[in-house]
Write a protein that binds this DNA or RNA. Structure first.
Lengths: 212, 212
DNA sequence: CCGTGTGAAATTCTTCACAGCT
DNA sequence: AGCTGTGAAGAATTTCACACGG
């Protein structure tokens, strides 16, 4: 029915939704694609085109109602409900993720955590009891987890992803530095700060060819 | 001289370099674009085209020498030297970043840290003394910092970015949930796990329209 | 015969530009 | 007069497909 919306478009919608939430918090009630675009470094035409995939939300001559558009986007993205999350791999990084409150604030509720190490499994972090990895399939058979966050070492990441997918998880946020494979129909996104830095050094190199 | 290489291409090179390093560690000496592509979920044609921007690294009928190509890519990206990094904002997230060793392992040396809070400034984390924010400009005037990592709250992020840019920093890795503006010639990359999750819920929503 | 390097084709994505509503 | 929504144009990116070297 929906005429296949490009993924690049979907990935911009959360940015629009966030900017609109900020505007709403500041008391703005109306915004043009021009103004929104300036805040986000996106052309106004891009915003209008992106939105046009989903409907007609603006008023000609006026712009968009901030609160309405924010709500529409949240509904389109499925952000008008909560999603359950589990974190796999409770090392330093996994602990930091569990302690991070930004997910919760946006409706992502962490309901479970898993780690292989016996000295970690059994501990409680942020009110969440860390379970043994061997309990993963058993747990996922009984509880719906919408999104899994993978924070295990690179060598184990693909195996963990496979287990998650086999247990029915359809969205994965991967912090491990590998390109994990998932079957068609499963979403995966990569958090890779090192790769991002490495993409910037290319440009630094030219400007700054001295050694250290 | 170099005929302006698309940024999408630059951003894939670190992935190639990493995959090649993994292959080298496994003892492989030769690899085809086909095989490399399978590991990275990239088409072989894409890999060959990307590499062709920089030269001719393969041997027809054979493929690429793993070690050579890895080294070539590292040189192209400027990864054959170390880069100095500072972290601004030493809250939970900033602390986790300071404690993370993945940057160091890849030649990114954190040499300074800054925080506003008087109770944090003065403490030492991972051997790095946290300085007061008011010392930022003074410090950057005396030391070369290649890349700044921003981990301050959203409201302060743009102001911090402006100060960094004004002090000559040309690459920024931004963990704050805003679209920060930088002038032409300054690189910035965004780490935004919430936005990435929000981009996935769109696809979950259709598969899974039940309420929690 | 295998696999690279690469022009050309195909596709995807972005921007333009303007008709039309307010 | 201002700003959206959108076909059409344009630009960027990816894929094709094959000549050529090992």
């Amino acid at each position: 029915m929906t005429p296949v919306i490009p993924e690049v478009v979907i990935n911009r919608l959360p940015l629009y939704a966030r900017a609109l939430a900020t505007l709403a918090a500041a008391g703005d009630t109306v915004v043009s694609s021009q103004t929104l675009g300036e805040q986000l470094d996106v052309t106004p035409a891009q915003i209008r085109k992106d939105l046009s995939y989903f409907g007609r939300f603006g008023k000609q001559g006026r712009g968009y109602n901030v609160g309405d558009l924010r709500d529409q986007l949240r509904a389109i993205l499925g952000l008008d409900r909560t999603w359950s999350v589990c974190v796999v791999g409770i090392g330093r990084l996994g602990q930091a993720i569990l302690e991070y409150d930004g997910f919760t604030q946006q409706g992502f509720n962490t309901i479970a955590a898993f780690d292989e190490a016996p000295e970690v499994a059994g501990s409680t972090i942020q009110g969440i009891k860390v379970q043994s990895m061997s309990n993963l399939e058993n747990y996922l058979a009984g509880e719906t987890v919408d999104i899994a966050v993978v924070a295990v070492p690179a060598e184990q990441a693909q195996a963990v992803v496979d287990r998650l997918v086999k247990s029915g998880v359809q969205a994965i946020l991967n912090y491990a530095p590998i390109s994990a494979h998932v079957p068609e129909g499963v979403s995966i996104r990569q958090i890779d700060p090192v790769v991002m830095m490495q993409g910037m050094t290319y440009y630094l190199k030219d400007l700054n060819p001295d050694n250290k």
